[in-house]
Design a protein around this nucleic acid. Structure first.
Lengths: 228, 228
DNA sequence: CTGATAACTTAACGTCGATAACTCACCGAT
DNA sequence: ATCGGTGAGTTATCGACGTTAAGTTATCAG
């Protein structure tokens, strides 16, 4: 645990500055070691060049610090989703690409993503604020466009976004937790899954959601027959 | 942290017995407090009626103990999946019900499910053994039946199982991590998602997996037209 | 120049996972 | 019967952890 040179005391008004440095140091530790066990108050303080109790001048407790770290992390996600959407006019393709961007974002820094979904004390968290204000809103916009096109009823937009999120989170989380499984090349499986979620829902919509298996089966038979 | 009455020393051959008691005690602590912070070596030892170092006679370290706890936990999952499948002849409906059983199993004991997917030291884990030998195998059987019916190519069975797993895990994990989201009643969203995964994939299969959005759109238009 | 206070340190508490060294009851072999 | 080996568990202790209380010092308004 290398300790940095001692900081000079910050000028009067700049408590916020150190807070930023602390978040940055914690993020770096997390990414470098890939293990949340490496992020101790002491290690963070040492990297910033400060003594452990100083951390508590800026964050109520360790959980609050980690929450701030994750909030910062998810702020980047919004940019990634925006970048994934640029130059893609078709909302269906855009939904897919944004979903894939989410998965890519998650597995790029496993330790950060994992820590963001760990158990948290109840109460308001910065992570939730950031997520609902950026990524969630952005996905809602895309899905709303799909709904406008008639893919789903407008009232289903919220549900569809949640389903896409659950699917993207599921594949990312499982890839991180069980890397030994047969995930195939790159994000092919994630792509197939996300496509299935988008299309499967419209398929269900057309058949009526509470479809009898036999009805589905008959429909499939017709489909296959019609296509050859 | 209540401590139990002192155990009498176990007879010669019965080290295994205490190991079982330790796993049980750790599970109880986890479920009762709903927080993995409540499961310390000391708390477990105290509950069993033994001193902390005794734990290390039966488990290499805390991680190994928690792995054993989770392995035991997932052994129950196999039973749940079996119970969910009984009396359901249709494999499509069975896949759905087993997926829902998975989600129900996960959210029934959040602390246990969460801990099972936390970061683990690389190397063989009992959890993985149990999962691949029971739940994964069981889902593969169901999906294989679907493939035999022509829902998917036989070569896709592994992928479909992974996708179902990812979807079920995703919705369960997200429901646990973000209970404040609009999940609706019960597992309705999970059900819709799982149905979409099953059906969406066959839809994709029929259209060709790398479908152009416009082609999808044309197909949807035809579908809607045909159904009115 | 001076007092108030923001920014930080020193010292310490209790708990944690883990290890080393010890005790002691049991059991088979003599 | 007894005695040594060993399995089962304990005592004592280590270093690291999160956190708090109390002290110190640099900065800045007046």
């Amino acid at each position: 645990m290398r300790s940095t040179a001692k900081r000079t005391r910050s000028p009067r008004g700049s408590g916020e500055l150190l807070a930023e440095e602390i978040i940055e140091a914690a993020s770096e530790l997390l990414v470098e070691h890939g293990d949340d066990a490496a992020v101790s108050i002491r290690a963070v303080a040492s990297r910033v060049g400060v003594t452990p109790p100083s951390i508590y001048l800026h964050f109520g407790d360790k959980d609050e610090l980690l929450d701030a770290v994750c909030a910062r992390y998810f702020e980047q996600l919004d940019g990634e989703l925006a970048a994934a959407a640029v130059d893609i006019d078709d909302p269906l393709e855009r939904a897919l690409q944004q979903g894939l961007a989410y998965v890519r974002f998650a597995i790029a820094t496993p330790a950060l993503y994992r820590i963001a979904f760990r158990q948290r004390a109840p109460g308001p968290s910065k992570v939730d604020e950031v997520l609902s204000a950026s990524a969630f809103t952005r996905m809602s916009a895309t899905v709303t466009e799909l709904a406008d096109e008639g893919f789903y009823p407008a009232s289903d937009v919220g549900e569809v976004v949640l389903e896409l999120w659950a699917a993207a989170h599921g594949v990312a989380s499982l890839m991180l937790a069980k890397p030994g499984l047969a995930w195939g090349d790159d994000l092919r499986l994630a792509e197939t899954l996300l496509r299935a979620v988008c299309l499967g829902r419209t398929t269900l919509g057309m058949l009526g959601v509470d479809t009898e298996p036999d009805e589905v089966r008959a429909w499939l038979r017709d489909q296959r027959h019609a296509r050859r």
